[in-house]
Design a protein around this nucleic acid. Structure first.
Lengths: 228, 228
DNA sequence: ATGGAAAAATTCATCGAATGCAAGATTGAT
DNA sequence: ATCAATCTTGCATTCGATGAATTTTTCCAT
């Protein structure tokens, strides 16, 4: 008996005509939506209009996106890079929780900004249309269980006391801070640069409370709070 | 010339019939909405139904709330306690940023859980209806400018380097972590107890990265990272 | 290539949230 | 009692979103 290929091989790089058309259409819809919204504002642009402009029925639009806002943001449901996820769950790569969280977030941002132009356009629209910002948080919510699984995987290997919820929010904090900083820089360079800055700021906020007056490393307050 | 009372005295405790009715109706709508949603689920309950059950027209419902979800959560647009806000802006009360943030969040939670029963019901519904969770984040968004103003006020008095965005997200992190922990405890005791725990966890996450091997307060790594 | 299975697009109907407007009712001050 | 301000309501409408049934397109085996 020859090894049968699993009935539904989920080949990610399926380059059948079907898949190609689907991707092209999706991209077209995102571009169309972004252009229209940039010109006329989020509320003035109806799904019907986007569809018409892209030569697609309204109903089909909703086969591609869960909502109008999703289309405008061009949400791609890319999970976390499996390699990075694996490393994190195994207690790596550095063994230091915050440091490894940073790596995780870097991987997230990597995928998030996969298509730089589209991402920048989406972020610009987010500045103008605060309602879209909220979708950004929803996006995090979708990955919540994925993140929780990672935290639960790592806990036995490299124990830590923080709740999943706190770590998830911390991830979100880093993502948003990095992105905001990137925005402010006029989208110069890479997002990652701003991520390090975000982590540094976080450390600084906490550290300045632990060791206040710049007293230095031997301040007892640190130990007190740390081991309290 | 006698001192004329300002035309529109914004008496917060206006006990005219009008104001009393308004509050009663609002409360009734929230209670009705929560009861119905608890029984039949968020999507099965229409605004029309809530209105009918409360003896109020659909149109009036939307005079009280911006959305169905707002009614279910019973959102009260209570800002931050002015006294606490003032203290924070002035660089207090402790002068330590994180500590003072905790005070700020405590004040927020205080108002958030002003009506304990209603709040608990809202949180229970949030557990069952993830969509409501997102409103929770929108709520934060509404207060964002308020928070940013506080940060900007404090900055010159007691300088710090963190971005407004990061601090805002940190506030949100503490709020959510505290509330989640409160939920897990079966809503025992006060929310504030869990807030301290949330802060402790945050410190621990960062501190364990700064001073890894549990070496203690005199570890040089702390200073290195801190002053880098 | 060709016929048939699978997938995707379209049409059509429908629901419900949300808003604007104008007319009617209630409350508050004089 | 009166008049203005405020609140409620009914009505019409727009638009986002979903479900079901039908037609079109792509794919694959022969």
């Amino acid at each position: 008996m020859t090894l049968p290929v699993p009935a539904d091989a989920p080949d990610p790089d399926d380059v059948g005509l079907r898949e190609r058309k689907k991707r092209a259409r999706r991209a077209l819809l995102v571009d169309t939506a972004q252009r229209l919204v940039a010109d006329h504002g989020l509320d003035a642009v109806t799904v019907e209009l986007i569809g018409a402009e892209a030569g697609v029925s309204t109903r089909t639009f909703f086969n591609y996106f869960e909502s109008k806002d999703d289309a405008v943001l061009g949400v791609e449901d890319s999970g976390i890079d499996p390699a990075v996820a694996q490393a994190f769950s195994a207690g790596g790569p550095s063994g230091l929780l915050l440091t490894d969280l940073q790596v995780l977030v870097a991987a997230l941002l990597q995928r998030f900004a996969a298509n730089r132009e589209r991402t920048v356009r989406a972020l610009r629209l987010m500045e103008a249309e605060p309602r879209l910002l909220q979708r950004h948080l929803v996006w995090m919510d979708r990955h919540k269980s994925e993140l929780h699984a990672l935290f639960d995987g790592r806990r036995p290997v490299a124990p830590f006391s923080a709740d999943n919820e706190l770590l998830t929010m911390l991830v979100l904090t880093l993502v948003r801070t990095a992105i905001t900083a990137w925005e402010r820089s006029g989208y110069h360079g890479d997002v990652d640069a701003h991520l390090s800055e975000a982590v540094a700021q976080l450390i600084h906020v906490v550290a300045s409370d632990i060791a206040p007056s710049g007293v230095g490393p031997s301040d007892a307050t640190s130990a007190e709070r740390f081991h309290a």
